[in-house]
Amino acid sequence: MHDLTPVFSAVTASFLASFVEVVEAFTIVLAVGVTRSWRPALTGAGLALAVLAALVLAFGPLLALVPITVLQYIVGVLLVLFGMRWLRKAILRSAGVIALRDEEAAFSRQTDALGRQANDRRADYLAGVAAFKAVLLEGVEVVFIVIAVGAAHGQTLYAGLGALAAFVLVMLIGLAVHRPLARVPENALKFVVGLMLTSFGIFWTGEGLGAEWPGEDFALLAIFAVVAAVSFAIVRRLRGAYAAPTEGIAR
Rank of each mutant, 00 (worst) to 15 (best):
L137V: 15
V184L: 15
V192M: 14
L195N: 03
G194F: 09
G215L: 05
A159M: 03
L181S: 06
A151W: 07
G208Y: 01
V168H: 09
N187I: 08
H153V: 00
A148Q: 11
H153K: 04
L169Q: 07
A159N: 10
A130E: 11
L161Q: 02
W204P: 00
P185H: 05
T198W: 06
G150D: 02
V140E: 03
G208W: 01
R121V: 11
A182N: 13
V135G: 03
V142A: 09
A166M: 11
K190E: 14
V135N: 06
V129N: 02
W204V: 00
L136M: 15
L197M: 14
L175W: 13
D217I: 07
W204L: 05
F200T: 04
R122Y: 11
A151P: 01
F167D: 03
M171H: 04
A188I: 10
G174K: 12
H178Q: 14
H153Y: 06
A166S: 13
P180Q: 11
S199Q: 11
I147P: 00
E212R: 13
K190N: 15
A182K: 10
V142L: 06
L157M: 04
A130N: 12
V193K: 02
L209G: 03
L189W: 05
L189E: 03
G162R: 08
R122M: 10
R121C: 01
V129D: 02
V149C: 09
A134C: 11
F200S: 05
L195E: 06
A211K: 06
V146T: 11
G210H: 07
G210E: 01
A131R: 12
L175S: 13
P180K: 10
T198F: 09
A182V: 07
I145N: 12
G201H: 06
K133I: 15
G210K: 07
M171E: 04
L164V: 15
G201L: 04
T156Y: 01
V143I: 14
Y158L: 06
L161Y: 02
L137P: 07
M171F: 12
A148T: 02
F144I: 05
D217P: 09
A182G: 15
V140N: 01
L161K: 08
V184R: 01
E141P: 10
A188V: 14
Y158E: 09
E138S: 13
V170Q: 07
W204I: 04
I173Q: 06
S199A: 13
F167T: 14
L126H: 13
G174W: 13
L172C: 08
D124H: 15
G150K: 03
